[in-house]
Each structure stands twice: as structure tokens, then as C-alpha cells.
Design a protein around this nucleic acid. Structure first.
Lengths: 251, 251
DNA sequence: CGCTTCCTTGATTTATGTCAACGTGCGTGG
DNA sequence: CCACGCACGTTGACATAAATCAAGGAAGCG
């Protein structure tokens, strides 16, 4: 799991985390786990599968804000923002951990380090949004597609999915279009172009990355590279090396 | 200050917060407060003035990710992400509060509620990025401009700037262009159009909103409205607030 | 005074959207 | 089994929003 990467959890933190992950649910593709502009009281962590976070516009189009992969959170700020602007829909069958958003408030008091770890997940999400802005703001259609696919592959690997598996991405061209602010027709044309260059192969609902390095070149990926994959060890240490000694002033 | 709006700070929290805000600095317009892909060890809170957070591309263009207003943070996740992808440049003279990023780790242990408040700021930032994606992803040029201006006005008012003052926005057309993924020429044309409709007036480096309601209509603003302006009171209560000071006259 | 920054406008080009038609596989119900 | 609808992808012809190129004006500033 992605949270394991954090490397800042000791036994007590792990127990708290296990508590959060205790309640698992299986959901099927197509299910809308969180509706747009509706109250949020449940926070979820995606354990397996793919989902999208999106917002719809009055004219019926939708903008995908971010793709959610194993280890990503849904409604992380549920306790702090009572209504969600965005909706979340599962695009494959998924396994989810679910708990009341208010539980997070306790977590913050029980374990500052786990709290920090969850903030770290939130911060990652923010970085993904920044990449998304970069794609849509400054890149042309082909580069947007290449960039998105490379980012997703990278995130899959960080989530512990095997590199070989991570070459296969279960998205339709329509989903790509909704994410990148392009028409499905144009996405198709660009994909065919990338296929001609042997960078990519597509099937119905599947993208296969043939040449990740070539794709990176096609979009200057390294320029927009997000580096940190884990909380720095010294920060973890400063967050209470000896948990037993920690006398907290909480009631 | 925007943090006052949170309404969840008791005296002890306030003391911790005062500690963070103790070290003030005056900086002038044009200064780059944080460089791209460089280490972060200082976290800042903008007390007055305007700044931009942006990333540059290899071909010399830049994408503005977000505008920073009084109450916004710079390098909030400095302790958790040691390098910053984005740069921050002041676009007016600014007053900043500065403290070592590691201080935040202590804050998390000293006051879970203040920690939550800071997370809330982070979550707000994320919502602004989502709005930005919506603008760039699904709106045409004129609507993007109107939407951005309306959002900025709204944020100014939330930051405690008087409504009358908040009608005046100190940006150049080039900044708008860099934020919205448009050419400066086209931004100019769209602005002239909005001026013709008496929704807007522009001067060199200044936008004046003549008709905020009209601008909202021009971009379906309410559809993408972000609602929560403060941490919900019950969440604050659950974070260990003593009822002593917080006796509210509510029914 | 001559720089620079910011804005303005017109002519032309280009990337992408829209419309339309068609193919394929796939599940469902008759 | 077939027939049908449906989701997904493909391709061409055409329309259009926005970029680019070019030229110039107005204000601030050393």
C-alpha cells in the first residue's frame, strides 16, 4: 500500500491506521461513490481499482480533475469541508476502506505523525492537480496525452503495481478527452499518431505504453517531474521519535 | 486575517499561531520568494499583497497555477515535500510572516486544532486549483477571464478586504494570459469585449469589476461555486474545544 | 530623451472542435 | 441462434476559436 511508503509509522501509528482501514467495501465499476455538491461524511481510501474525480458543467460536459489510484483518498477533507464540489465515480471494480470523516479529527490528536502522513497524501493530490493544470494550460493535445499516460504509469509504480502491469492503463479515449479538455475525436487522432510512432498501443478501453521514454520525450515530462515519493526521514524523526514518551495535552 | 475566520482557535491555539506570525518581512514586487524545483525550508503566510505560484516550461512560457492573496500560505508542505515544483513571485509589494517549515511539525503536536486549521488552508488551495482546471478545461476564453476575476473578488472579500476595494484587481493582461493558458493578444480582445458590455474596466495593470453579477452570468459562476468559508463549528468542537469560551447563542 | 512595459488592432495561420457516417465487439432479450 | 442496441473507436469534411505575426500607441522612468 502507498501508505507503507511513508516509512514514518511506528507500531502505535500502524494500529491507528489499521483502525481506519478496518472497514472494507467492494464496489463495482460505474458506481458513484460521492455525488457532486453533496454533503460528505465518509472518508475513503482506495485499496484497489481506478476512479475519477470530476465536476460537471451546466451544458452536460464533465471535467475530470484527477484520476484516483490505489492509495489515494476520497473525501479526505470531509471533516473540514462539509460539502464536496466534485464527484467520484469508479471506473473499474474497486475495493475501498471507509470510515466516518470525523474519525480523522481524532486521528490528528491520537497521532500527529499519522496526521502528517495523511496531509502528505493531500499534498500529493494537490501536486497532481498542478500537473493537470500544466498539461491543459501549456501543452498541445498530443503532449497532454503522453504526459498524462506517463504520470499515471509513474503513480501506478509508486502505488506498488508491478512495472509490467503498470504499462497497461484501463481508460477509454472519452475519459482521456474529459480529463484533458479535448474532444474525443481529437484524442483519437492523436492516439493514432502516437501509435504510428510505436509509442503506444490502444484497444477498447485499454492503453498500453510501448515506449515510456519516448512518451516522456514527446512531452518534456522530466521538466514537470514531481520528485518526493516519501516523507523525508528527518521530518518523520522530528514528529516524535519515541512515541511512548510523548505526553500529549489532549483531554 | 483569514485565519481569524476559522473560529476554532482558543487562547492557547492563538498563542501558537502568534508564534508563527511573529517574524514579519517586507518584500517588494518582483521578488521571487521561492524558486522552482529548489529546496524548501521556510514556510510563509502572506499578510498583505499579491503573489503568483507558477511553473515555467522549457520553451520559456510559464503557467500560473494560482494567485496568492492575503491569508494564503507559501510552502505549507515544506516539511513534507522538501523540494518545491513551483515558484512564487510577488506581483505587488508584500508583507510576509516567515518561519522554518519544521516548526509546523511541532505545531501539529502542540495543537491538533491549529494543525487542522492549516490543513484547511491547504484544502482551500486545492479547491482553487480545481477551479483553475475547470476554467482551462471547459470554458472559452471570455468565460475563463470572467470566472477568474469573480473568483479573485470572492477570495478578496473572504480575506477581509472591503467589497469596494475588492472590485479593483491589480493584474496585467499578461498575467491573466499566463494563468489561463491564453495568448496576451487574445486576452486583450476578450477584455475589450467585456468592456464593451460594461462588465469590466481595465487600465494598465488594473482590472475594475463594474458588474460582478453580469460577470458571473458570463461564465456560469454559481455552478462552480465553492461554498465552505470556515471550518464547521461542530468539527471545531470535536477537536477538543472547551465549551468555556465557545458558548454560542445558537438555538 | 530613449528605454521599457503594457495595451491595442488587423491580417493570417493553425490547432482543435463539430458534424456525420461507419465499423466492431459485446451483452441482452427474444 | 439471431437481432438489436450500445459503447467504443475510426475517419473525412468542414467550421471556428485562438495563436501568431506585425505594427504601433501611451505611459512611466532612468
Amino acid at each position: 500500500m502507498r501508505l507503507d511508503n511513508l516509512k514514518l509509522l511506528d507500531d502505535r501509528d500502524a494500529a491507528v491506521l489499521d483502525g481506519l482501514l478496518a472497514n472494507e467495501a467492494e464496489r463495482v465499476a460505474g458506481e458513484i461513490v460521492q455525488a457532486e455538491r453533496s454533503p460528505v461524511d465518509t472518508t475513503r481510501i482506495l485499496l484497489s481499482g481506478w476512479a475519477i474525480r470530476y465536476q460537471t458543467t451546466r451544458d452536460g460536459r464533465r471535467q475530470i480533475l484527477n484520476f484516483l489510484l490505489p492509495g489515494d483518498t476520497i473525501g479526505l477533507y470531509g471533516a473540514l469541508f462539509r460539502t464536496s464540489d466534485s464527484a467520484v465515480e469508479l471506473i473499474t471494480d474497486c475495493r475501498l476502506a471507509e470510515f466516518p470523516s470525523d474519525r480523522l479529527l481524532q486521528v490528528f490528536e491520537e497521532s500527529a505523525r499519522l496526521g502528517a502522513a495523511l496531509c502528505w497524501l493531500g499534498g500529493q493530490d494537490e501536486r497532481f492537480l498542478e500537473q493537470q493544470i500544466l498539461r491543459i494550460g501549456v501543452m498541445n493535445a498530443t503532449a497532454r496525452i503522453a504526459h498524462l499516460l506517463v504520470e499515471l504509469q509513474r503513480r501506478l509504480m509508486n502505488a506498488g503495481i508491478a512495472p509490467a502491469e503498470a504499462m497497461t492503463i484501463p481508460l477509454t479515449q472519452k475519459l482521456i478527452a474529459d480529463a484533458l479538455g479535448l474532444s474525443a475525436v481529437h484524442v483519437n487522432r492523436c492516439c493514432r499518431e502516437l501509435e504510428k510512432q510505436r509509442l503506444l498501443e490502444t484497444g477498447p478501453g485499454v492503453f498500453t505504453l510501448l515506449d515510456p521514454e519516448g512518451l516522456k520525450q514527446a512531452c518534456d515530462y522530466d521538466v514537470h517531474f514531481t520528485r518526493d515519493d516519501a516523507i523525508p526521514a528527518d521530518a518523520a524523526a522530528k514528529l516524535g521519535a519515541e512515541p511512548e514518551k510523548r505526553n500529549r495535552p489532549s483531554a
